[in-house]
């Protein structure tokens, strides 16, 4: 790969995710057409756009929860194909946080965080537990470690979901509308956690409509519409002076 051949040490902007000419169809509906995106290590990208624009589909293709129909996806030097060895080696490095948390309801909070490190990374139970407690402390929920997901509020569950993903020590974190299912008063606690993570240097791709969050941490805002990337810019430029009519319309609708 280009960045690896360039010299002894990778460039600071070495791409950790490269998406080229990505195509995804659902039956006759084309959800993504010729999407190109590259994410540098440490970069924070906010994906926004109207519903149905393909932003969730794009990040779900990056860890192969949706199978793409055309184009290439390369994550951390591994090209994503249908071979499960490739898929799993990518998924190990890519954490994902869902809109609806998707915690395992029959496992306690700490067990939710321990399962994958033990089964996938081969950690022993004490190691996995130590890591889980450490990360639950980071998201400030370690005092609830022995409770079950159903006993926690939405905001708390989402913070656990973030800790669960971090327990795999991923290189990239994908966020699929992490605050959309939350009551308004719980949005902040989740965003604060994400901001902290961003400041730690995590590479992040976030589908979100939280424009305050985008302004604060995004290096780049990517605006999508009808399955294509319409505009990319740094947050200041994007919010102050969107170039396209579609982006202007969209911003007009979400910023009251």
């Amino acid at each position: 790969m280009r960045q690896l051949a360039a010299g002894n040490k990778p460039e600071p902007s070495a791409s950790i995710v490269v998406v080229e000419k990505l195509v995804k169809r659902f039956g006759h509906f084309t959800a993504l057409s010729d999407v190109n995106l590259s994410v540098a290590a440490g970069e924070k990208i906010v994906l926004c756009g109207p519903s149905g624009s393909g932003k969730s589909t794009l990040i779900r293709c990056i860890n192969h929860i949706e199978r793409h129909d055309g184009g290439r996806i390369v994550v951390d030097g591994v090209e994503l194909t249908d071979r499960m060895t490739d898929v799993n080696s990518i998924r190990r490095e890519v954490g994902m946080v869902f809109q609806s948390f998707n915690l395992f309801p029959h496992l306690s909070i700490v067990e939710n965080c321990m399962l994958a490190p033990m089964k996938v990374r081969g950690l022993s139970r004490p190691e996995a537990q130590e890591r889980a407690i450490g990360l639950l402390r980071k998201v400030r929920i370690h005092d609830q470690a022995d409770k079950y997901p159903g006993q926690l509020s939405g905001g708390q569950q989402q913070r656990v979901a973030i800790a669960r993903a971090l327990c795999m020590q991923p290189k990239i974190m994908l966020f699929d509308e992490p605050t959309s299912a939350l009551d308004p008063e719980m949005v902040k606690e989740v965003l604060d956690t994400m901001v902290e993570l961003a400041k730690d240097g995590m590479t992040m791709v976030c589908v979100t409509h939280e424009m305050g969050f985008a302004r604060e941490i995004a290096d780049r805002v990517v605006f999508m519409d009808r399955g294509a990337i319409v505009e990319e810019a740094d947050p200041e430029t994007f919010f102050r002076a969107p170039r396209t009519e579609r982006a202007k319309d969209f911003l007009g609708q979400i910023i009251h």
């Binding site: 860890n63 192969h64 929860i65 799993n88 998924r91 190990r92 890519v94 954490g95 994902m96 869902f98 609806s100 948390f101 998707n102 915690l103 395992f104 029959h106 399962l115 994958a116 089964k119 996938v120 669960r164 993903a165 795999m168």
Partner: peptide, 22 residues
Amino acid sequence: NRGQFEACQALALSTFDTYRSV
């Protein structure tokens, strides 16, 4: 819920572990 399967996929759990543990 489909989300349970997706969470297992995202965590790179094998099919066997997905069904046995989750």
